[in-house]
Design a protein around this nucleic acid. Structure first.
Lengths: 241, 241
DNA sequence: CGTTCTATTGAGGGAAGTCAACAGTGGTGG
DNA sequence: CCACCACTGTTGACTTCCCTCAATAGAACG
């Protein structure tokens, strides 16, 4: 739960306050949209297990996944400050959510400036990741997009202690990977085959095995700085207490 | 300067504190990158006039503009909480910047919770826009991308009182428009011609004239909700003072 | 008055999409 | 327990949107 500390430094009192929150546990079946675009929500979802995807949808029904959230992530922290959600959330796999009410989170942020700051910083990190995705989708080819996504997920799973850099579980179907990389499942499948035959990475039924990390990073022009996971930032709102 | 109030409600005391900030005015020539990727910065830039573009760059030098900032916008508010900038900022046109030091902004946010909240919300709005761009770049064709960008800029200029919805100044070259929409300047030029011949919109040397707003919105599948400009949110951090 | 952007148009090629068929897999209910 | 169905993954043939390369003309600027 205290994954926030990977980007921000909190006092033990603040950590305690967070751990003291209680929320509502919810099981969500795969492919179930539990928040839809434009809906007004009163809680944020901490992913407990499974995988959540933030997405936008076109009129013709095609979807673009804008960000995957792994266990430990807050899937819609931004909604704390803007309760009308501008996006949808879907379960990419069977998922367990911990719903935390906005009022509780707001009270926490109002009481502990360090927590407010950590929330703010997490939203900025979200934005940083989005920004990188825009570059990826706007200017890079199919192979680079896939390589980049796999690198990103590898680092995120590793940093959260849920997998190794070269071997981790990514419970997404090929159709979902295609929705995240802005391409067709057919073409994605072909590119995955190339990567497999090239001895670079194998993606098989939710398991990712990286054979050549260096080459994968090079193909995706991946630089993990944008994840803002390098070192927790010292607190900046010093005077507020 | 107090464009923050278009998304958040501040007390007059808070507004006064913001107006009391003093910064460093800086002229920047067109095409000049004044913040580069990975640089550590000590200030944020308020755009006073001109146009700023946030961008990411590939190894081969191709660029993707991830967000344009118009006069009144804070171009790198996120850097207040993560001083290492993960992106670059360039002047899309001759621009005047007001540089505000991070320490001043942090002191302000630490003193006035309403300002901290407004900053936070602005960063969330940034993320909301990014998110929409990911959908646009990942799932929509060239015409839709351009239409969507033009709609977005029309609304932003109108809301900030710097133009009308159907006629405004957008000081970007076609090459820059192409960098923002993830396509080639050549192809962008062709699509602009189609839009012009279709009596939908004319883009000519920095001037945008919309002939058919309804059709432009339809082409771009534009829904302005993601800009988070509809109504200022009431304050949520009530207890912090 | 040249040099350098910017805008425009043409011709041809290539990466990715579309349509379609089929095999494997897992879940479900009769 | 097995038959069935829906989803997933895989591959082939064809199409199309957009890129690449190229040339030209106008505009801006010193």
């Amino acid at each position: 739960v205290n994954r926030l500390t990977s980007r921000s430094i909190l006092t033990s009192e603040e950590e305690g306050a967070i751990l003291g929150l209680d929320g509502h546990l919810e099981q969500v079946a795969m492919h179930k949209d539990f928040v839809s675009q434009g809906e007004r929500v009163g809680y944020s979802c901490l992913v407990a297990s499974g995988l959540v995807g933030r997405f936008g949808q076109n009129k013709d029904g095609t979807r673009q996944i804008t960000c995957p959230y792994i266990p430990g992530d807050m899937a819609d922290l931004p909604s704390v400050v803007s309760s009308r959600s501008g996006w949808g959330l879907t379960a990419l796999a069977p998922t367990t959510l911990l719903q935390l009410s906005h009022s509780d989170l707001r009270r926490l942020a109002a009481t502990y400036s360090g927590i407010a700051e950590a929330f703010w910083r997490d939203c900025v990190a979200d934005g940083s990741i989005f920004s990188e995705w825009i570059v990826k989708l706007g200017r890079r080819g199919a192979t680079a997009r896939i390589a980049h996504l796999l690198c990103e997920m590898a680092v995120r799973y590793e940093r959260s202690g849920q997998g190794e850099l070269l071997s981790f579980t990514l419970p997404m179907t090929q159709a979902q990977l295609a929705e995240a990389t802005g391409m067709t499942n057919v073409h994605l499948n072909r590119v995955l085959r190339e990567l497999r035959l090239g001895e670079i990475v194998t993606v098989r039924s939710g398991e990712v095995i990286v054979h050549d990390w260096q080459q994968l990073v090079a193909l995706g022009e991946f630089n993990k700085a944008f994840l803002m996971l390098d070192e927790p930032s010292p607190r900046i709102l010093v005077g507020a207490l």
